[in-house]
Design a binder for these strands. Structure first.
Lengths: 194, 194, 194, 194
DNA sequence: TATGAATGAGTTTTCATTCAT
DNA sequence: GATGAATGAAAACTCATTCAT
């Protein structure tokens, strides 16, 4: 049942989501209990269930929110750039930057992939993301700048490189974003050109 | 405590590991209880704790075993091939094939990355895997066949592409291994050459 | 604290009681939360506690009201009929009719009997009801129309028949009231005459 | 999943059922928590869930067991008595005696009627019980000893009288069984003869 | 070796009630 | 009078692990 929230209510809700996202990413979804969350905020346990029907639902909302945000960032970065290859480059860089700023979200997405209850949400998100990339790649193929391969496969490859470098160098080793982005861009553009 | 096992004992142990691996990958590590495992095998709960000190330990052993197996496969595939690029190609293909044959292991590795208790084991495994790839890449750079970039970064990129394509096309969509491997190889070799 | 209510206030109060009675009888007392009640009416939770000190109190009031109503109906039906047996018959018929029109109340009374918190209220109600019947029966014995047995026991038997037939045929099978009442009357009058 | 129980296991299971039945009937089903049950027995909470999948299931088993027992008692009492009216009388007396000895079961049945989760079980039980009575009544009608009315309705009336007198005089006032049974028999036989 | 039984801390969730605005 | 927010004790249930036999 959708609840009508006051100003204060909306603030609480956001507070819960932020707090939970951090705890989930730090200790893992399963190791974070609802008690952990409400204790961290210093509120009663009922508060949680006033705003979310269940722990799972909260997690799903976090996932959805993260994806919405990432996509917004990508679109903003790409703007109305005409060259498909440049669009892809801008997309990779924006993604890298966003992962850098939202490490916790990154971890959550990784986890969500391993639990049946969340794979659906993820699948929807992925479809959109891959769809975006595919459009640019098709443009690039038409323009003769990208090898004539199945665009979707190329898109997956680009995403694979970006995510992997982000995890290893941004999350685990905390290296400078720009350099990591440079490496990803270089590898991907070469991979695409064929 | 290391236990001295009889012939039959070793068989039981393996049976437990195989069964657990399948259940973990099907339903997730957390959703699979020790009871699930022993019930599936139709044995008592004591059996489990006779062979493994804890559920975590069992999982770690599974991970270790999987990695040992994958590496063996890669090395066998590469043999003493002299050309570094071909070595990389053979490695990618062997990996793809192995993922195809051991889907469940793939899922488990994905999961292990999201839980602090297992990241250590994974890190060790990864180090070895990346180390292998790095050697080939360095050879390739020396031979002038690969762009002069940080070899480790390139290795990560290759692994990123391989894993991603494996997950999307082998696990989720069950497409023919060879084609997926072809795509991975093509993208990676281009990405490496610069 | 007795509250002085405005016109509108009394309406609200009645609305709450009616709504709660329906929910209690549909889903059971325990399975109906105060939230359910106020949500059904589309009001805030404070409203409930403005009109009733607690959920239990509300239920008790509902019980009292139902009984008051039933008794009024019986008395109206009996009027100043002189023949004791006819008085009993009219009472049975009125009761049956009332159960027919107030199924939910019937269910609530059944439930109340199983919970210590409400048995007191019920006991009082029962005493009155049995008392009424006992008077008619005594008159009947004096008039030689009813067997000379302990009047209270006979009264209980009559109530037993009436309630049972009401539950089985009115509530569970929704059969026509008159026929059910006929059957109850026939059995009871025979039972009484001895 | 059906569990294979040892001697000791079966004893525990019975112990749990007996204890729970008593607590349910003393304090009510809802007011008795699983913790109450296991604490009363001085065992851990897991024990409960080792033997029963849920609190509801336990309750259902108790209901089924009680009914099985009551019916056995009725059949034993009736034996191969040829006269239908005497059979009914013996049935009423046996029932009364059983209610006397199993007060707690009586309360439980009353409660079960008010909760949707249990009405199914009850309905099955009732069908059997009414069916038994109906057979005797039909015989009685054929023999000309019972009024020619719908047998099922008569059966319901008999049950109504028996239950009501049992509740009022055995449970609430603890009067001697034989006298209560006498009263029930007298009223019912008269009611049946018409 | 193997089994069924037992433990109990820990988890998610519910809900009657109170409170600040 | 009325609302949404907050409380927190208590409930049902889970499950890794240990133990007696």
């Amino acid at each position: 049942m959708e609840r009508r929230l006051t100003q204060r209510g909306r603030a609480r809700r956001t507070e819960l989501m932020t707090c939970a996202a951090r705890l989930f990413s730090d200790q893992g979804f399963h190791s974070t209990s609802v008690s952990d969350i409400v204790n961290t905020l210093g509120v009663g346990k009922g508060v949680f269930y006033w705003y979310f029907p269940s722990k799972d639902d909260l997690f799903i909302e976090i996932l959805r929110g993260a994806n919405r945000d990432l996509r917004r960032r990508q679109q903003a970065a790409i703007g109305d750039e005409p060259d498909p290859l440049v669009r892809i480059e801008l997309g990779i860089r924006a993604t890298m930057q966003w992962f850098h700023e939202h490490r916790s979200s990154f971890t959550l997405i990784q986890f969500a992939r391993t639990d049946d209850r969340f794979t659906d949400v993820l699948a929807q998100n992925q479809e959109v993301a891959i769809g975006d990339a595919v459009r640019h790649i098709k443009d690039g193929i038409v323009a003769g700048e990208i090898a004539d391969q199945v665009p979707e496969v190329l898109a997956e490859a680009v995403v694979g490189v970006t995510e992997r470098l982000a995890r290893t160098y941004l999350l685990e080793r905390d290296e400078p974003v720009t350099e990591v982005a440079d490496a990803a861009v270089a590898f991907c553009l070469n991979g695409l050109k064929g």
